[in-house]
Design a protein around this nucleic acid. Structure first.
Length: 439
DNA sequence: CCTGCCGGGCA
DNA sequence: TGCCCGGCAGG
């Protein structure tokens, strides 16, 4: 099915969903459980033909999807279990990549999500690939494939989407496509983390309980406590050592568990990522969630703050923006080729070119699919692959959910005032995204 | 309440 | 395609 209905306003998908999307449950039509649960989930709101799903639902779906994958993998000896989750025959030898794939542009979570799905679909009939499933997978993957926020922790909004319950609080009803997640937050771990955890440790009831929690319980509070102190717990069997630094826990795992003797000659310097999880200070000592990846590198220094204090000249700030309307199209000076130089060599947050702030947005595989198969959209999900110092330069995917934040930059309305509306840019006059003072 | 702006309607 | 505006989300 080809999408022709846009998700709600400011959908982070920013993409179109098919007419079936107006039917309940199609958004998550990857499995009967998902459908029914989401159908019954109170967070699903229908506004006209616009569907809104709270982020807890999205995260739950994502978690559910991943759990299906891993549960199926783990139920290798039980064919019934392998068939019950999505109602299709799924190979029990699905190779869920334990580590990130070599291709830096492919979000590993996408691989984790799609590979079983593709396998699942291809086992029946290649032509019968359920586009709903693919869409859902892409979308869910996109949710998890985002770069660290440009201003990172400098912006208070980065703390908002996460909740104590571990549910990511985002609205699927927007089209901005910016999602944020506290990079230091351990829960919920990203799908990549889930993938790692799923392959490193058997899924336990905790995952399911958490899933049920985010699916059926009330949405978690919007604001997340800031006073989060993280520790890292070794997940090696019968160890449970808790250290307060990533480096420390990695060193512990590497030296104590992985690299002692000649047992692990090819001990990877990034393998220790799979053997620890991040825990909160107020968190229960036991760690139910899969081990989390090391926290991403510290965010780049805030530039937006400077931008917000003085209205930037359009020629000093470059954006690579997918434009939905002509008035939103970037001027010719905003050369995409300039973006390319930064796109793959640095975290897609902010690049500096000759002193001028130059921000780049890239798209994930799922997003590209959505863009190719649906109407143009402005929302972009990022999946950055950055070198991890702790893993000896090995590529580490930092998939963070990213949400468009409310602009603090002055807009035409604020600069010129309502009385000088004729001085506003066209977009502002049309109540569109300001074209003059890009944020 | 104010602001930014998405989505959609209309010419 | 240009223009306008209802309405929503966030502050």
């Amino acid at each position: 099915m080809m999408p022709n209905t846009r998700l709600g306003k400011r959908s982070p998908f920013g993409a179109l969903v098919g007419p079936e999307t107006t039917r309940p449950g199609v958004v998550v039509a990857m499995g009967p459980q998902g459908i029914s649960r989401v159908r019954g989930h109170s967070d699903l709101k229908v506004r006209g033909n616009v569907r809104r799903i709270s982020v807890s639902s999205c995260w739950a779906l994502n978690t559910w999807l991943l759990s299906q994958v891993f549960f199926q993998c783990d139920d290798a000896g039980d064919p019934r279990a392998a068939n019950t989750s999505c109602g299709r025959s799924v190979s029990t030898c699905i190779d869920v990549p334990r580590r990130l794939g070599p291709a830096p542009s492919v979000c590993p979570s996408l691989v984790n999500i799609l590979s079983p799905m593709m396998l699942c679909c291809s086992r029946n009939a290649p032509q019968e690939v359920d586009m709903d499933e693919l869409m859902a997978a892409m979308v869910l993957s996109s949710l998890s494939c985002s770069p660290p926020p440009p201003q990172g922790s400098a912006h208070k909004d980065t703390t908002a989407p996460l909740t104590d319950g571990g549910a990511v609080e985002l609205s699927v009803s927007g089209s901005s496509g910016y999602w944020s997640v506290d990079p230091k937050s351990p829960a919920p771990s990203s799908p990549t983390d889930e993938a790692r955890g799923g392959s490193a440790t058997p899924p336990d009831e905790g995952l399911d309980m958490e899933l049920n929690q985010v699916l059926f319980e009330e949405p978690a509070p919007r604001k997340r406590r800031n006073s989060l102190k993280a520790a890292f717990r070794c997940l090696w069997p019968a160890c449970g050592k808790v250290l307060t630094s990533v480096v420390g826990i990695k060193r512990h795992i590497r030296t104590v568990h992985l690299c002692h003797g000649g047992e692990h000659e090819r001990c990877s310097r990034s393998e220790e990522d799979f053997y620890y999880c991040e825990i909160n200070q107020w968190e229960e000592p036991h760690c139910q969630s899969p081990p989390s990846a090391p926290p991403p590198p510290p965010p780049s220094p805030p530039i937006g703050s400077a931008l917000s204090r003085s209205a930037p000249s359009p020629c000093s700030s470059f954006w690579q923006v997918q434009s939905e309307h002509s008035y939103q199209a970037p001027p010719p000076s905003q050369v995409v080729s300039q973006a390319a130089s930064c796109l793959l060599t640095a975290p897609p947050t902010t690049c500096s070119r000759q002193g001028a702030p130059f921000r780049v947005r890239s798209v994930s595989v799922g997003e590209q699919w959505l863009q190719q198969h649906s109407a143009p959209c402005r929302s972009v999900f990022l999946c950055s692959v950055v070198p991890s110092v702790a893993s000896g330069g090995a590529l580490t995917a930092v998939c963070l959910i990213f949400r468009r934040i409310r602009s603090e930059a002055k807009k035409c309305r604020k600069v010129y005032g309502i009385e000088h509306r004729e001085l506003w840019c066209t977009a502002c006059r049309w109540k569109k995204a300001c074209q003059r003072f890009l944020d």
